[in-house]
Nucleic acid binder design. Structure first.
Lengths: 199, 199
DNA sequence: GTCTATACACCGATAGAC
DNA sequence: GTCTATCGGTGTATAGAC
């Protein structure tokens, strides 16, 4: 039987998180204050402590949300990858790249330590590990099995993401280099070319 | 004639900055408080305002210091580069990589936006631009003249730096991949191999 | 010119009444 | 659960001592 009490509580939690996301996108991730969040959901600041143990606990839940979203999106793409390994590598990279670049606040929370005292809890970190585990599995299917190769792949992709966000937000100066970078990587690990010749 | 007044003032400024660096390395970049910094140099917090207009002005001066150091070190290396372009590329990348990885607090200040309200001033940003301008010049001498190529190069190197700092601080999991990544890049832009064959 | 004492507004967090 | 009241701590402005 449904537990209306629990449902209501969960709804309030989500309402608080939505308010926090909205404020993060508007004023910056670290500029969120408990008073602002509470005000946005019609509460006083101390009332938030009935739902989250601390401000960092709110960041923690947001962190888990963000990586869970990413896990869903990456799995969805992984299920319908193009047959060419090289094109598949590009599709994977492009999906993650666009996901990260489309939300600056979310990207900062997921990948940078921009909040002074915040360290994600093991529970919140789990979906991030999930994304990486999935990547290893998919990459193995594409012929990339060495862990060092995947370390290189992730460093390249996130290097381009960080450069794009930091130096040309809203533009495409590094976004344009992504396919070329993946070709470069594919050449290095010996993945055969898909169709035609590389430039 | 020497201006003892100005000399004393400059010495005090450097003393304050040294204290700030020490506290940043000890407790984290964003954890330094004006009261702690002041205490370390034998002052009260408000006295710092005789030397810096705000806390962010201290970060600003530290930012300029860090990138000036980097500019010096990179120029020093650039003056005595190995003759092989490929080896020279590796030497440049390795120098910057080691410089960044050797000081976490400095790396955060230079390359990440880990301080909430802080944005470097144009004056403090100048040495960072200098480093990039120098890189363009050196790279041109090595046969890399396309700006997009250099964008790719910097994204790869800083991607590896960030991964090393974030996921394996003190280790070498991504450090080991640097030479390989540069070879991969050199292959892509058509720089001939130095000696022997790539693996 | 430097430094101090004081004060202010804001923050995250806690205690206790209802 | 939510409130009011309040705490210790922060960056910072200002008045004034030396």
């Amino acid at each position: 039987m449904r537990d209306r009490q629990t449902e209501r509580r969960e709804a309030t939690r989500l309402e608080i998180l939505d308010a926090a996301w909205a404020l993060a996108r508007e004023n910056g991730l670290s500029q969120i204050t408990l008073r602002d969040v509470a005000n946005q959901v019609g509460m006083r600041a101390p009332s938030l402590y009935s739902h989250f143990g601390s401000k960092n606990a709110i960041y923690d839940a947001m962190f888990a949300q963000a990586w869970s979203e990413a896990a869903l999106e990456m799995r969805d793409v992984a299920r319908r990858l193009p047959s060419s390994p090289r094109t598949a590598l590009k599709k994977l990279a492009r999906t993650f790249f666009d996901f990260e670049v489309s939300d600056l606040a979310r990207h900062q929370l997921m990948n940078q330590r921009t909040i002074p005292g915040f360290e994600p809890s093991p529970a919140a970190y789990a979906p991030a590990v999930q994304v990486l585990d999935d990547l290893h599995e998919v990459m193995a299917g594409l012929g990339v099995r060495d862990a060092a190769d995947i370390d290189l792949y992730t460093a390249i992709v996130s290097g381009l993401i960080d450069a794009q966000q930091a130096n040309d937000p809203g533009g495409d100066r590094w976004s344009r280099l992504l396919d070329r970078a993946i070709d470069m990587f594919a050449d290095n690990v010996g993945i055969p070319e898909s169709v035609g010749r590389k430039t």
